[in-house]
Design a protein around this nucleic acid. Structure first.
Length: 424
RNA sequence: GGAGAGGUGGCUGAGUGGUCUAAAGCACCGGAUUGCUAAUUCGGCGUAGGGUUAACUCCUUACCGCAGGUUCGAAUCCUGUCCUCUCCGCCA
């Protein structure tokens, strides 16, 4: 959510930003309603002040005065309640409008309507290999080595669920160990989180549960929802809290179980593990001072690159265009790994994503920081980044490290965790 | 799951319908003072919104877990709800 004062004072810039992002905007209406709201607030407060003044005299009033005061008090409070209700209604309308307005955008982010305008800004250290045999996709490889079982997944939980077996499990655990231990060395605090969160927290992060097109599984008769990413719980950790400036930047790495309905995604390229209802992720999250967030964002991106370089997977880095940014993101980088089994001759597929959400989530979640010796508080900035999405990491490892005979070489960094250097 | 107790400022903790404008202490910040490892003393010390200003400068409103209700007036009374603690039961 943007700051109301900021919207009022920068209406034209906010409108232009909405246009760049392809979001319909009603900024003029927000400005009008907010102006009206402030007037109503002043009115309600003034009436309340008068009523308080009357009440204060009540103690030393004579019995006759008392009755007159009571009557005046009643009337003032009634008028105040009326003004307050109008104010509250305006407030609700503004909130509804404003919660649909996306974050402002980093001046360097490419401007464009959709992912076609995304800008490739870097390539990984590992080049795309020309295979001298026909690449198998991860499903075929999974079948050869009995690693992925979608049929059983469907029997138990429906299409889009799966069992990992044998070396896939070892590989997944190795990847988790590898990513977490790497990030702990970089100063991240490892955390496990709840796999459910209250609706309020989801809203704060920018998810909209329980709508017709929601990505979120919700638990009936409760305010609980299965998380779609640990961004939700990690960001929610400090809901309504005030941090000390010297604690920042606060960097967390969480083990994230992700549950997604993928409503509306039917028909999109989604063979195998690429788009599933449940997967596990290693997720980075940071709370920073406003002046730190750009630097930390670059740091998260660099760490993602480091992990994929170490896994010897070819990838490209993409600076996400305005029209393709999610609402809370100020800037977003994606890593797209080369997936030889995807499409007819291989394709890039998104494997990580890191966003700087500036104060957009922090304002909704009310996460602030205080500077020692200074008055008042400020909103933190929040950032998130995928370290590894295990399902897609599995795809990229299996498909990139496959050999002509169908065996799969284990990347060097995983061998100690995996206990072997080759699958099959 | 059952029974009970409780949620008040950074912390401890008083406050059971009207100077609560929330006592007091601790911690913290600033000043003063005294030659004894620090003491004493004075002052300040929350968050958010609105108005005002050269200026957190002044004014004002709200906030005692949260949401409602009663009342001219609620930290205080009522209802609901969330959370914490203790005991019992169950359980990985």
């Amino acid at each position: 959510m943007l700051d109301r004062k900021f919207v009022l004072e920068n209406a034209e810039a906010v409108k232009a930003n909405c246009k760049n992002r392809g979001t319909p905007e009603e900024i003029d209406q927000v400005v009008a309603l907010e102006t009206e709201r402030r007037a109503k607030l002043a009115e309600a407060e003034e009436l309340n002040r008068q009523a308080n003044a009357i009440s204060a005299q009540m103690g030393k009033a004579t019995p006759e005065q008392r009755e007159a005061f009571k009557e005046q008090g009643r009337e003032l409070r009634a008028r105040k309640d009326a003004a307050q209700h109008e104010h509250d209604e305006l407030n609700r309308q503004i909130d509804a409008l404003l919660s649909r307005v996306p974050n402002m955008t980093h001046p360097s982010a490419p401007i464009g309507n959709d992912d076609g305008s995304n800008l490739e800004i870097a390539r990984g250290a590992t080049p795309v290999k020309k295979l001298d045999f026909k690449a198998k996709d991860h499903l075929e490889l999974g079948q050869i080595h009995d690693m992925i079982d979608f049929e059983s997944g469907a029997r138990v939980a429906g299409a889009g669920f799966y069992f990992l077996k044998r070396d896939a499990v070892l590989l997944e655990l190795a990847l988790q160990q590898f990513a977490i231990s790497h990030l702990v060395k970089k100063g991240f605090i490892p955390v496990t989180t709840p796999d459910v969160a209250n609706t309020e927290i989801l809203h704060g992060i920018g998810f909209i549960p329980r709508g017709p097109e929601t990505q979120i599984y919700s638990i009936e008769n409760t305010e609980l929802n299965l998380v779609a990413t640990a961004e939700i719980t990690l960001g929610g950790m400090y809901h309504n809290q005030v941090l000390e400036a010297e604690q920042l930047p606060l960097k967390l790495v969480g083990i994230s179980h992700c549950f997604r309905t993928e409503a509306g995604a039917a028909g999109r390229a989604s063979r195998g593990l690429y788009r599933v209802h449940q997967f596990t992720k290693i997720e980075m999250f940071a709370f920073t001072l406003p002046e730190q967030s750009d630097v930390v964002h670059e740091e998260l991106r660099a760490l993602e690159c480091e992990l994929f370089d170490l896994l010897e997977i070819p990838y490209r880095v993409v600076d996400t265009a305005t029209g393709d940014l999610g609402g809370p993101a100020y800037r977003k980088y994606d890593l797209e790994a080369w997936m030889p089994g995807r499409g007819t001759e291989g394709e890039w597929g998104e494997v990580t994503s890191t966003s700087n959400c500036t104060d957009y989530q922090a304002r909704r979640l009310n996460i602030r920081y205080r500077v020692k010796g200074e008055k008042g508080t400020h909103y933190t900035h929040t950032l998130n980044g995928t370290a590894l999405a295990l399902s897609r990491a599995l795809i990229s490892i299996m498909e990139n490290h496959q050999q002509a005979d169908g065996s799969i070489l284990v990347p060097k960094v995983l061998i100690p965790w995996m206990g072997k250097d080759r699958i099959g």
